[in-house]
Structure formats: structure tokens, C-alpha cells
Amino acid sequence: MSKNGDFKKYWQFLWRSWAIQTSWNYERQMNMGFLYGIAPTLDRIYPNEKDPQQLAYKKEAYQRHMAFYNCTPQTSAFTLGLAASMEEQYAADRENFNPDTINAVKTSLMGPLSGVGDSFFQGTIRIIAFGLGIQLAQQGSILGPILAMIISFIPSFLITWFAGKLGYTMGSKYLTKLQGGMMDQLMYICGIVGLMVIGAMVASMVGISTPITFESTGLVLQDIVDSILPHALDLGIVMAMYAMIKKRFKTGWLLGICILGGILVNAVGVLV
């Protein structure tokens, strides 16, 4: 690939990482955002939709990137660059590359990258920029908001640009060396990290609790649950959803169960 072509890719990683939240939704959060980010790469790899083989590959790749995803946009560029290079490797060597690794890598990275990204951009840069900005604005100077915008923009731009570039070049450089047994090892590592992160997500992102109290004894059910197994309700609901997915419930049904079930169960006073 020419230098020019790479440059264009880095721009795509930057802009499409920034635009990742445009369809943020409760169910899979930034899934379509990630798909939109990687779509140019997939279109480049599988250009011929008339060829049934390529069309099938392309559908499979598009579907792969519709999975749950959530990450700080700036740092997410790293994952996008890496996933793009993995898709290229996979297309070049379908025999030896296990495509499940791609989503496993995405899932493993989104937690740490969000942690670093959110605390840096929301915790540090924002406080500096707006601490200064407020002070100047209180003195009646329009430089306040302008300065806050500049301080916010520069690190965001630089980090997104270099994160995308780094992810892509690292992927191209190291992943080509993966063969046979190596792939199994990577898959094993990604599986462990990915699933531990998903386990952590269940405990920290769902947040279901019960308001039930026993009036006669003054016991609060949630306290009892927490003392035995914290976040047991979150785990229970996720496992129930998992079981229904495995039983191949229709998606429309599941969505209906979520919304109507939420209203009903809440009205009865069992869960909040």
C-alpha cells in the first residue's frame, strides 16, 4: 500500500473514531459506530459484490463488527486501526487466521482504553481547559471559552491520529508473524481477557437492584443480596438473556420483553 493510501486510512480512523457515538444505543452501545469505522476497510478488502464468495465474506465481516462495543472515541482509534489490519490479515490468509480473535481483541481493549481515555479527557484535560476558561470568562473575557476549546481540541486530535496510526502499523507488523500454534495462543489469551472484562462489565454496567423491604422485620432485600453475592441480580438478568439467546428467541420478542418487562416489573415494585 502506498504512503498516500495509508494517509487516507489514518484520516478515516480519526474521523470515524470521533463519529463513533452517533448511534449510541442501550443494547449494543457503539456497535454501529465501530462498523461505520471499519466499513471502508471491509469495502476495500471485498470490492466485488457480484462474486457470491466475496459477498458472503463481506456479510460475515460486517456482521462481526455489529457486536457490543463501547470505548472513549479518541483511544478507540487504536482498536479501529488494529482491527482494520487484522481484517486485512484475515482476508490475506483465511486458512490460518481465526476471525473470532478480532472481536476478542476489541473486547479486551475497550475496557482499559476507556479507563485511560475517560480519565485523561474527562478528568484531566477538561478540568484544566475549563478551570482556566471559567476564570477568564468571569472577568468578562471571550478568550475564556476560546482557550477552553483550543486546549480541548489539540490533545484530542493528536491522540486520535496517533492511536489509529499506531494500532494499524503495529497490527501489520506483528500479526504477519502469527502462524499455526501462535494463533491458538493469542486466541486463548484474548478469550481469557475478553471474558474477564465481560464479567466485570456485568457487575459494573447493568445496575439493577430491588426495592423490596420486609416491613415486619425492617430487612432490606437488596442489603441481604449484596452481603451474599454483590450484583447477583445483574448476573441473573444477563444469564437469563443469555439463555434466551441460546434458545434462539426472536430478537423482536427479546426487545419487547426488555421494554414491556421493564415497565411491568418496575410497576409491580420488584426491580428498579
Binding site: E27, Q29, T107, V202, V206, M241, I245, I259, I263
Partner: peptide, 16 residues
């Protein structure tokens, strides 16, 4: 609000 939590649980279960 509770429904939105169920949806999040569903999304995570799909990933799982």
C-alpha cells in the same frame, strides 16, 4: 429506565 438496563444486559449477553 429499568427497561434500558435490561437492554444493556441483553447487549452484554449477545457479546458473551
Amino acid at each position: 429506565n429499568l427497561g434500558s438496563k435490561f437492554l444493556t444486559a441483553y447487549g452484554i449477553a449477545l457479546l458473551m
